[in-house]
């Protein structure tokens, strides 16, 4: 199918330049291949979450068993909740801070030290996870010993830290793309910069903030290595739970949870997508 289309585009090169200028041979095939590669594992895990058999290798019969079992599995439940809690709080904190930071780096005149500030914001991206994990473990243990404070705050702090650059990138990109004239006009219209920000800049910036928050959330909820070293008692996140299961073989219960997560996220993202569309 795709090939024929491509060929016909080639042949119509002269006739319809506008459509065809963008065309690069093979690119659409690669894009579709990319989609297949991205989705193949997902399809497999969704399918096997409905497999009646315990083995995750051979299909026997359709059943809801693993969903029921996962629902009753306290370990999975609390790990999922913990993951959601940590990811939500970290993503919100990181997005707030990243938004503020991005406003500075794009909306103030460059000053001495701004570049180093940007470097610092990107720092978590530059350090391989295992290094951060070990460093944070030692550091947090020292704080715990000195202050005696325990709790999930440490895990959230660590997640917030590595989420900031991920939230920062799309917000900064959006701010750079935004038309400054609009903001200047707003600055003239409204008495205070805060009002101008709230009425004009913020709404325009919203798509950037949403994608920043989503990216931060995803990065947080997927994290294994740093969580493994930082998490305290009762702070097993879903990836940690799965990691603990590996020695005994991952059961389709985990696939079932993953499928549920996937479904929720698809619904959530669809809603955001549709709401955004209606606003336009």
């Amino acid at each position: 199918m795709v090939d024929i289309k491509a060929l016909s585009r080639w042949s119509s090169f002269k006739k319809d330049k506008l459509v065809d200028l963008k065309y690069q041979p093979g690119f659409s095939q690669i894009a579709w291949f990319c989609m297949v590669v991205l989705y193949a594992p997902i399809v497999v895990l969704v399918v096997f979450s409905f497999n009646e058999n315990r083995s995750v290798t051979t299909w026997t019969q359709f059943s809801w068993d693993w969903y029921i079992k996962a629902w009753h599995n306290e370990g999975i439940q609390s790990a999922s909740l913990m993951s959601l809690e940590v990811a939500t709080i970290s993503a919100i904190l990181a997005t707030l801070m990243a938004t503020m930071a991005a406003l500075v780096t794009t909306r103030t005149q460059p000053y001495a030290g701004m570049n180093s500030a940007i470097t610092i914001i990107n720092q978590p991206l530059m350090v391989p996870e295992i290094v951060t994990a070990v460093a944070t473990l030692i550091f947090f243990a020292a704080i715990r010993k000195v202050t005696g404070i325990t709790g999930v705050g440490y895990l959230i702090a660590a997640h917030t830290c590595f989420c900031i650059p991920f939230a920062y990138m799309p917000i900064k990109a959006r701010l750079e793309d935004m038309n400054l004239n609009l903001e200047h006009a707003a600055a003239d219209l409204y008495a205070s910069p805060l009002q101008a920000f709230r009425r004009v800049t913020l709404p325009l910036l919203m798509p950037g903030i949403v994608s920043g928050a989503m990216l931060a959330f995803i990065v947080s909820i997927d994290d294994v290595v740093i969580s493994l070293f930082v998490a305290g008692p009762g702070e097993t996140t879903l990836p940690l739970f799965i990691l603990g299961q590996i020695r005994r073989g991952v059961t389709p219960e985990v696939n079932a949870v993953a499928t549920v997560f996937l479904l929720i996220s698809v619904i959530l993202v669809t809603i955001i997508f549709l709401v955004g569309k209606n606003k336009k």
């Binding site: 997902i42 895990l45 995750v56 997927d222 294994v224 991952v250 993953a258 997560f261 996220s265 993202v269």
Partner: peptide, 14 residues
Amino acid sequence: TIPFWTNLLIRTYA
């Protein structure tokens, strides 16, 4: 972005 919402460990197992 959708596949991202599934845990990477689980996807690696898949």
